[in-house]
Every structure is written in structure tokens, then in C-alpha cells.
Amino acid sequence: MMIKCLRDIWTVARHELLDSVRGKRFAVVLLVYIAGTMLACNACISVLHRLENQISETLMLSASSSPGAVTDALMKSKSFQRMIIELVKDREVAMELLSVPPLALIYAGLAFTFTPILIMLSTPSRIAHELASGSARFALVRTTRGAWCTGKFLGQALEIILPLMLSAVGAWAIARIRVPDMADTTVVWALITYGWKVWIYCLAFIGLGLGVSQFCRSVNHATAFGLIIWTGLTVLYHAANHYAGEGLREAWNIVPVLLPAGHRLALWRSDPTRVIPAIVYLVTIAMVYFSIGHIFFRKRNL
């Protein structure tokens, strides 16, 4: 029984992946995402170059002719480090970020911000669409609802690897063209590291999207419901950070733990004692969000 269940999960995941990738919508979104990442990286490199020149002037360093030429010197300068610490408000994180290649920071920043949006625009419709068209019925007389939904989750998790990977390649290609010195193996490794961290972060949003999808029977309702919930969670996260304090207001500190955004900062870091708990929390959050939807879905009329 267990083997059949695992086999069904993998069968559904594989089909889900192929079905998602086949659609024109996916191709368009993928292209927009990759192009967006590349353009944003290009823009950030230009901004970086302007900043380098400004900071070079301030720190009395020689002006650079190409972007990234004085980045190492900049990052090693105490004045710049003080600036970053002041900006991040967390010395440990700031010091760790200073050792990360700027291109990887740009890529991770974009991926942490935009991939959840991409997921929340596409994932909530995955189950709702099949319920609306009735195609779910063909599968659900052949496998359990649990295996079908878990397969969908796995398929979506695999699907998101493609834009993350291709956008990393795109970002690296831009860097290779504009800042050849920046695009070395350290950068590739940093891109891969942040790529899989973003993937882990995205699992929570896939769980949220599919959790929402299990409640809905219309694609439009599911997408709208997903965006509302996502916005609500974002507002809640910022409210919790704003209102957290001493005494009774300490209760607000619990809220970020329950939200994906509450674990994002830990993923920026390289210290495993910070990263691993964040991963565990994010996977748990993904499962909880997904399961809330599934508790309703496993008993619902189809």
C-alpha cells in the first residue's frame, strides 16, 4: 500500500511537472522571469558601478573604469563595513553578507522577492483548475486524494527549480558580459547556494498556494484568494515586527515564526546553526499550510 502511494505521488509529480511546463502560460512567465532577473542584474551592476565611483571618491580611492573593479577594495574598507552594519542593523549578518559576491546578493534578493509572487500567481490555480474542468475525477478514482495532492506539491516544487536555475544562469551571463572579474567559480557556487535556499523558501509558498487551491473550485477565485492570503500574511509579518516589544507585546514575536518571511533573514546567512532551523521551520510551515487545505479537501465533494 505504501509503495503504491509513493509510486502514485511520483507519477502525479512527474505529470504535474510536464503539464505545467507544456502550457504557454508557463513559457511566458518563465521568459518574463528570466528576462526580469537579467535586466534587474544589469541595472544593479550599473547602480553598483555608480556607487563604486561615488564611494571611491568619498574614500579617496582611484575611480574605477569598469563596474566591480574596486568592489573588493570597497568591501574590505572599514568605512564600507560600518555602512553595511548600520544598514542591516545586525553585525553578524552584515559581516557574512560582505563575504558574499555582490552578484549572488543581487540574484538572491530578486529571487527571494519575486519567486514567491510568481508562485502565488500560478500555484493556487493548479488544483482548482482541475476541479473546475473535472479532470481531477479521472485521477481521483485511481489514486488517493492525499497521494494526488502530495504529487502536485512535489511537481510544483520541481517546477520552480527551472526558473531559479535559468535565472541564475541569466544573471551569471550578464555578469560575465559586464563584469568578467565577478563571474568566477566563487560566484557560481554562491548562486547555487542561494538558489537552493530560495527553493526551500519557496516551498512554504507552494504549500500556501496548494493549500488555498484545495478550498477553491474556480481558477479566478483561487488566484484571488491566494493573493489576498499572501498579502495578509505579509501585512501580519510587518505588523508583528512593528508591535513586538516587552510584556504582552512579546506575543507578537511568535507570529514571524509561523510565517515564511520570518525565516528569510536566516537563509541569507552561511552559518548552518542558523540556516538548518530555518529550513526545518520553512518545510514545516509548507506542510502545515498544505495540510490545512487538505483537511478540507480530503472530505469535500468533487
Binding site: 500500500m1 473535472g134 475525477r137 481521483l140 478514482v141 485511481r142
Partner: peptide
Amino acid sequence: PARHSGRVSMMPQDSD
């Protein structure tokens, strides 16, 4: 489905 999979099938009326 775990018990009857492969032994029972259906053709729904209005499903794409």
C-alpha cells in the same frame, strides 16, 4: 482508491 484502484473506473459526464 487504495483498495479499488485499477479495479473500478469511471467516465464522468461533464469532465474535460
